[in-house]
Each structure stands twice: as structure tokens, then as C-alpha cells.
Design a protein around this nucleic acid. Structure first.
Length: 552
RNA sequence: GCGCCCGUAGCUCAGCGGAUAGAGCGCCGGGCUUCGAACCCGUAGGUCGCAGGUUCGAAUCCUGCCGGGCGCACCA
């Protein structure tokens, strides 16, 4: 609908320029908005106000000229009025609203789909938690965001790939092995020392017991034992992470192992490549990359004095590999505590001639958990933290995802577990789903009453005359452009607000008017309207990775 | 000290250049003999952190300050 109006305005401006009604000027960026105040029409634009500066004419005069020359062959606009300082308010012909509802019903699951992406290959790398411990709430927030972005990209015609990068080499994996080893020894000798930088959580002990049952550790040299435990522990953790994510409705297309960069020789190629570009130098026995030439504060070490590579080295190699795999765009989702890392990685990529905007890094802010009116303090050091699994088991996938997705990722998020746990009323999470279930229930009732939807509704739509009914259709009309904007802005939280609004509109309408009544045609018309709402809600929920229950 | 993010209703957050600043929760008061009350209706609650600037117009953009969070490793 917005697009249609945009076209009309463009055509009209062309005409005005051509015929000299307005002095020729470059087309400004104007906005078409949906006013809150019904008096301001179905749509409004600031076009005339934007134009005013260049035209040496008042906004209201320009608006008048535009309105007089509107090119509207399809009779889309019922009337156009000038409001306020020079807004043009448009009222759409009611038949066009019926057309839209009919369109929604025809397209069903595909309503809102677009071809913004044109099959372009895009990758979202997210979660990428170290396989040294269970997923926590921050990972959950990243998982929800990443997965939903992917669902939306897919809906927008991108060829999207979900990827999880596994840091399965280096010190932390060794520390994992040492931690498990120590806990295993402690089973027989409680005084056996635990490494000072070891992983504290109870899961380490559980791992130790579980592995010891299946594997013979006795008789192994301590180093061999730790190596073995590193391997087994890491695999086990990875398995759990996979399970937890699957339960959270997040499934990856690719699990990329850091260790593969070593075994495939990619990391060596990367270093050679950087060297060829003249970006490498040696200092103090270490190997450095000149990232400072590309906006970084300082140069960075990629090979330490002891000969081992830094994680930064493999990160560069990994991202070059993403580039070589042909992704046209890559989005990384990181915890906000990694923000210092962004410039560094981008600098390294730019040194290889990769454009700066190829990679987008979304930094998600902290999640705080509240229970019983107090913050649940978490610290990885002490191993005292609430895992994603615990939270999901406690309150359900839908509720957790909804809360994570209802805030912009740049805002810190307070998760009130008491509020979300409530399955009764008062929980914002169920509001949208309830509207869906309610509509399903109405259709069950309609079936019992033998009221079916007409094959060709045609004039049936004309029974929809109430302002609230047209407002509902207008709300449905917002959906496609909203999806586009969300894909562009990477802001899926807007979808939760939209769904809450359309659900609210429907609840209000439902409470005031009967869908199924004595008049068959009116009932059918309102059922069609309800069907449209149901379709939009279901499509929206599905993009958020939430279920659309038929009964609750 | 430098960099990034955040200061909007009692609480949690939307809005990010436009017409009277919104929602959920919480408070108070109403609504089920008819399609699901996990719902609806109504009341109260705001110098949009502060101060300047940009413009026809600023919660929104710019600058400075104040307050909070997070980073500034040959750590992972």
C-alpha cells in the first residue's frame, strides 16, 4: 500500500516538474507515515514540507499543487487533505482495502514475503560459544536474535546461512581438560588441587564422573589424560550446546571448527597472504599485523613469542574463509564485551581489500536476571550462573524468545523471571498467541454453525464498514513494509511490537462486535477479516520462531 | 585517560527529524445467561538526564557536561 502511494507521488511529481507546476528539483527523500490520529488519514506524507525550502513557496501551497495534479488512474485515493504545517493526508478508497484483505487471504503464509535479497548469499554467525561450559542467558539472547534475523532474511529472499564458530583449540580447551582432570582426581583424593584459572561450575564434576565411567583414565600419564579429557570434555559440551540450541529452535547450517583452520593449512595460507600484502612485521620475537594502517588503535600480535598463534590470527583466517566462500554479506553477533575487537577484525579484513561494510557486527548488551524482586548475580568465575537450558525448562521457549526479542539489542535487558513464568494473564508473551488461538476458536464455532467462507467473497467484503474493521486491514497492510525495514535495520524487536498492536486491535474489536451473528453475509465478512488477522499473526510469530497455538 | 552502548511514566522498555510522547507491568475503579475474561473499558502517572546549538519543527541530529554499563593484553 505504501509502495503504491509512493509510486503515485513520484508520478505526480514528475508531471508537476514536466509541466512546470513546480520548479524542477532533485527528488527529496520524503516519508510516508501512518498517522495515529484517524483525522489525519490512512497515510500522510511530509513531501510538501520537504519541498518547501527549494521551491520558494509555502508547504501548504505546494501541497495544494500536488493534490490538484495527483495521478491516480486506479482510483486509489479517495481524498487528500492538507493538514498541520503542510502534511498531505490521504484517505484510501475503501475498495482498495478490500483488495488488500483479499490479497492477504490469497497469499496466506507468503503474505509479507519479498525479494529484497535476490538470492544473495548472506551469513549470520552467532552464539559461537566456547565449548567449555553451558550456554548462558547472553548466548540465548544472541541465539534468538541471530535465528530470527535469519528467518527474516530468508523471508526476504536471501540465501541465508546460520553458522556457529567453535573455538576448539588453545589454552581454554586445555584448561577445560585440566579442570576435569582435577575433579576426577578429587573423587578419590579430595585434597587434590584445582587449577586457579579452572572452570568452576558443577558441570565439570559431572563431566568427570560421566567420562570416567566410560573411559579408563587410570594408568595414563597426566598429560595424556588431560589431552584425552580436553577432547572428550569439549565434544560432550558441544553436544550439549547443540541440544540446548535445538530445543530453543535454533539450528545451524554449519558448525565451523577453529581446529580445521590448522589441519587444512588455511591458517598458514592466511599468514602468507598477509605477508605478501606487506602487512606483517616482526618485533620483540613476535609476529605482528599492521592493523593500525586501517583504523585500529595499534598493531596486533598474531604469533606470540612462544610460537603459538593468537586467537586473532585464526579469526582473520576464519573471516577470509567466509569471504572466499562467496558470502556477499556477513553479520556477526557478539557480546558487547567484545566491542573492542570489532575495529581490529575489520582492519585486518580491509588490509586484504575487503570492503568495510561487508561485515556487520551486532553487539548485544548484557542480560540481567531478576527473581523475587532482586537481581540474580551471576559470575562465570564462581560458576554460579543460570543457564539457558534452565531458563527454557522453567518458562518455555516461546516466552524466553519473546522477551529476548522484544528489546533492541543495543539496550541492556532485564529479564524478570517471575513475570515471564506467569502463564495466567498479565504476561505480555501470551497476548499475541491468545489472539491467534481465539480466532481459531471462532472458526471452530463457525464450523459448528455451518458458516463457511465463500469461494468468491466478491461483494461480501462490502459488509466491512466499521472504522475498526478498516483499521485492522490497514494494520495488515503495514506488515510487508515493516518486514523490509526490519531486514534493512536489523531490528527484529519491532516485529514484537507490531504483533502486540495488531493483536490488541483484534481483541478490542472482538470485545465490541460479534464475529458470528444472525446475518450470514456479515458473519462471513467478519470471518474473512479475522482470517486476515490470523494469517498475519501467524506469519509474524513464525518469523520470531514462536508457535501459533490453535488452542491454549 | 581513550573508545563503544545506555539515561523517556513508579518498574521494564518502544518511538530516533514532523501534527496532543506510547506499550506492558504495577496502582485505583468497572465489564462474562450470547463467538475463549490468557480479554476488554476507564482513571491516575512525563521539565524525554542537564546545558547550549542546527531548523519552519528536536525525545530524535551536533557539541559540552552529569550519571550508569562494558571494553582498552604476546588473556581466552
Amino acid at each position: 500500500m505504501k509502495k503504491k502511494l509512493t509510486n503515485i507521488l513520484h508520478d505526480t511529481l514528475d508531471l508537476c516538474f514536466r509541466e512546470g507546476y513546480l520548479s524542477k528539483a532533485p527528488l527529496p527523500e520524503f516519508v510516508i507515515e501512518i498517522p495515529n490520529n484517524p483525522d489525519h488519514g490512512h497515510f500522510a506524507t511530509n513531501l510538501a514540507m520537504i519541498l518547501a525550502g527549494k521551491q520558494k513557496n509555502s508547504p501548504r501551497n505546494i501541497a495544494e499543487i500536488i493534490i490538484q495534479h495527483l495521478l491516480d488512474p486506479d482510483h486509489f485515493i479517495l481524498k487528500a487533505e492538507i493538514g498541520g504545517a503542510g502534511f498531505i493526508n490521504f484517505f484510501v478508497t475503501i475498495e482498495r482495502w478490500y483488495d488488500l484483505l483479499s490479497h492477504v487471504i490469497t497469499l496466506k503464509d507468503d503474505y509479507g514475503r519479498n525479494n529484497l535479497g535476490k538470492k544473495k548469499k548472506i551469513m549470520v554467525e552467532f552464539v559461537s560459544a566456547n565449548p567449555t561450559g553451558p550456554l548462558h542467558l547472553g548466548h540465548g539472547r544472541g541465539a534468538a536474535l541471530g535465528d530470527t534475523l535469519c528467518r527474516i532474511f530468508d523471508f526476504c529472499g536471501y540465501d541465508v546461512s546460520r553458522e556457529f564458530y567453535i573455538n576448539d583449540t588453545g589454552q581454554q580447551i586445555k584448561t577445560l581438560g585440566e579442570s576435569i582432570y582435577s575433579r576426577w582426581r578429587q573423587l578419590s583424593d579430595p585434597s587434590y588441587p584445582f587449577p586457579s584459572d579452572g572452570y568452576q561450575g558443577d558441570y565439570i564434576q559431572e563431566l568427570a564422573i560421566e567420562i570416567a565411567q566410560k573411559t579408563t583414565l587410570e594408568g595414563l600419564d597426566i598429560h595424556d589424560a588431560i589431552d584425552l579429557l580436553s577432547e572428550l570434555g569439549k565434544d560432550k559440551m558441544l553436544e550439549e550446546i547443540k541440544e540446548d540450541l535445538a530445543k530453543f529452535r535454533v539450528n545451524f547450517d554449519c558448525w565451523y571448527r577453529e581446529s580445521d583452520l590448522y589441519s587444512s593449512g588455511k591458517i598458514d595460507d592466511t599468514i602468507k597472504l598477509i605477508k605478501r600484502k606487506g602487512m606483517l612485521f616482526e618485533k620483540d620475537g613476535a609476529l605482528w599485523i599492521r592493523t593500525s594502517s586501517f583504523g585500529d588503535d595499534k598493531d596486533r600480535v598474531i604469533r606470540k613469542k612462544d610460537g603459538s598463534l593468537t586467537y586473532f590470527a585464526t579469526d582473520i583466517s576464519y573471516h577470509l574463509d567466509k569471504w572466499e566462500r562467496g558470502f556477499k554479506r556477513v553479520i556477526n553477533i557478539w557480546g558487547a564485551d567484545h566491542h573492542g575487537y570489532v575495529t581490529r577484525v575489520k582492519a585486518a579484513l580491509m588490509a586484504e581489500g575487503i570492503p568495510e561494510d561487508w561485515l556487520d557486527v551486532l553487539l548485544i548488551q548484557l542480560v540481567k536476571l531478576w527473581e523475587g524482586g532482586a537481581e540474580v548475580k551471576m559470575s562465570k568465575r564462581s560458576g554460579r550462573y543460570v543457564t539457558l537450558k534452565e531458563l527454557v525448562d522453567n518458562v518455555g521457549v516461546d516466552a524466553v524468545r519473546f522477551v529476548f526479542l522484544s528489546k533492541d539489542h543495543t539496550s541492556p535487558l532485564d529479564f524478570d523471571i517471575d513475570l515471564v513464568k506467569r502463564r495466567d494473564s498479565e504476561n505480555p508473551v501470551y497476548y499475541v498467541q491468545y489472539a491467534h488461538a481465539r480466532i481459531c476458536s471462532i472458526f471452530r464455532k463457525a464450523a459448528i454453525e455451518n458458516i463457511s467462507l465463500p469461494e468468491n467473497p466478491g461483494s461480501i467484503y462490502e459488509r466491512l464498514v466499521l472504522d475498526e474493521e478498516i483499521a485492522l486491514i490497514r494494520k495488515m497492510a503495514e506488515f510487508p513494509s515493516l518486514i523490509e525495514e526490519i531486514a534493512r535495520e536489523l531490528a527484529p524487536h519491532r516485529l514484537t511490537y507490531y504483533l502486540t498492536e495488531i493483536a490488541g486491535n483484534f481483541h478490542r474489536y472482538y470485545n465490541r462486535h460479534r464475529i458470528i451473528g444472525k446475518n450470514k453475509y456479515l458473519s462471513q465478512a467478519r470471518l474473512l477479516l479475522s482470517l486476515g488477522v490470523k494469517i498475519v499473526i501467524k506469519n509474524g510469530l513464525s518469523l520470531l520462531g514462536l508457535s501459533a497455538p490453535e488452542m491454549m
